[in-house]
Each structure stands twice: as C-alpha cells, then as structure tokens.
Design a protein around this nucleic acid. Structure first.
Lengths: 139, 139
DNA sequence: TATTGTTATACTCTATAACTATA
DNA sequence: TATAGTTATAGAGTATAACAATA
C-alpha cells in the first residue's frame, strides 16, 4: 500500500481509461496498415537500425517465447522484418526491420501519435507543463 | 493536419507509449483474476447496476457483434454476467453484472487503478496540476 | 425490409509441453 | 546441464458471411 498524493489515483485512473480506449482504437489503426494489433506492437518495439533478440521481444511483450515465433513468422513472411542467427551465440535469433518494415513502422508511428484535437483545449504553456509532468512519471 | 502546440505531440507520444506498455501489463492483471484481457475490458465497461445491450458493447469495444456473442457466452458460463431479452424490443439482449461479476469487476478496477510508485516523484500540487490537465484533454 | 443477435468458418493470438540445437 | 528458439496442440479473440427472430 503506497502513499500517493490525493490526485495521483484519479490521474492514474484517467490514464487507465485512455489505455482501455486505445485498446479499442488500435485495431482500427492496425487494419488500416493491414496488420494485427499484436504485429503493430512488435513493429513499434523494433526501432530502425537496432537489432533485438527474440527473447528480448518476448520479455517486452510479456508473452511466451513460442508466441513470438508465430508473430515473427508472419511478419517475416510479409517482408517486414528479418531473422538472423546471432554471430556470437548461434542459439539466439536477431531481428531487424527491413526497409519495407521501417516504412510500415514510420506510418504506424505517424498514425498513433497524431494527438487528439482535445489537446487544443490547452494553451501552449499548459501543454508544456503536461509534457513535463508526464515525462517525470512515465520515463 | 491539426495545429497543435509544440508539446502536444510529445505529450501524446508518452501517452501512447503508456497505452502500449499497458497492453503488456493487462494480461498479468487479467491472469491474476483468471480472466482474459478482452474479458477484463467487457467487465470494465459493465458498470454495476447499469444494463447494456450487446450491440452497445460491440460499439464500445469497436469489434464485430459476432465476437461479442462469444465473449458473453464465456462470461455468462462463469456466472459473471446475465443475458436477458429486452422487454421493449425482444431482438435486443441486455447484459448486467451478477453479484459475483460485480465483485470481480471491483477487484479488477482496484488492481488496474493503483498508481505506479513513479507518481511519488511529483509533489501534491504537481499531481493536482497533472490531473487537471489530463481531465481537460481526456474527458 | 431492416435490425439484433447467433452460427459457421477461418485465421490470428496465446500458453503449455515436448523437442532441437547450441552453449 | 542450461538456454534460445521451434513445433504440436488447444483454447480464446477476431472478422466475414449466412441465418433466425423480431420489428
């Protein structure tokens, strides 16, 4: 039982509402890119130019390794990611975005991160304050 | 292309990161309650004492009606919700939480809304400011 | 005729358990 | 022996299309 300030709980509840509504809106963005929500999550985690082991991906997705195999199978079949054995440990498979995958990811990030018009309700100074407070809590 | 203040985009990006990380944490909360993430979403949408038609649920979940049938089948089989034909339009099926479902929902909300310790980094005044700004954007 | 929900079907997501290859 | 990933299997989530009951 942590002792939070009196507003932390309500602020967090708003953020949880947001997450659940995002849960409903991600499928629409995904469908626009002809991807599933889970595939979008994988693409989002694979930053361009950075190699990620399948096990790392399983940890980040908080899912079983066997699940990652299937996700990667389908993304690889569509030419969006590449799967190569690691040079230093051949048990490990290393994932990278293909150029096509990087383009798909860029499109995804663009769709996901265009802020809702409701942000316009805040002044520039308020937007800056919001950003700073969120950064301290979430980063 | 909307014109947002310079910080809106970054603030929104933080919120999207949060949503995707929630996407990874919801399954753990769900497993604790022996539910799936989708079932948690349904339970969260069914407020105690309020009747919801299946079609409304499909809209709120942004999914096909046929999918709701399966979700409701499983929740009803576990005694968490009840499905009754509407008195005014017998095509419509109306959903309500059972007492057991209401208890499961209360537990779910409690688990979901306990704020992360990182909120402690903010002073009480800052938490209040954050709440007010979020409320204006998200409500 | 139009609408609400169900059924049939197919595919994806997900976990568990058994397996292979490598360390 | 331990670890990374795969395969087999089963159940849940999801959409599309065809259907039944009701309006």
């Amino acid at each position: 039982m942590t002792h939070q300030g009196p507003h932390a709980c309500r602020a967090w509840r708003l953020l949880v509402e947001l997450s659940l509504s995002q849960r409903a809106s991600l499928p629409a963005v995904a469908a626009e890119l002809d991807l599933s929500p889970a595939q979008c999550h994988v693409l989002h985690l694979l930053e361009p130019g950075r190699a990620v082991a399948m096990g790392e991906l399983a940890s980040a997705l908080a899912c079983d390794a066997s699940n990652v195999t299937g996700l990667v199978d389908r993304l690889e079949a569509r030419g969006l990611i590449s799967r190569q054995p690691s040079a230093s440990d051949r048990r490990v498979k290393v994932l990278t975005l293909t150029p096509r995958g990087a383009r798909a990811r860029a499109l995804l990030v663009e769709r996901l991160t265009s802020p809702p018009v409701a942000f316009g309700r805040l002044s520039a100074a308020e937007q800056r304050t919001l950003l700073e407070l969120l950064a301290r809590v979430l980063e």
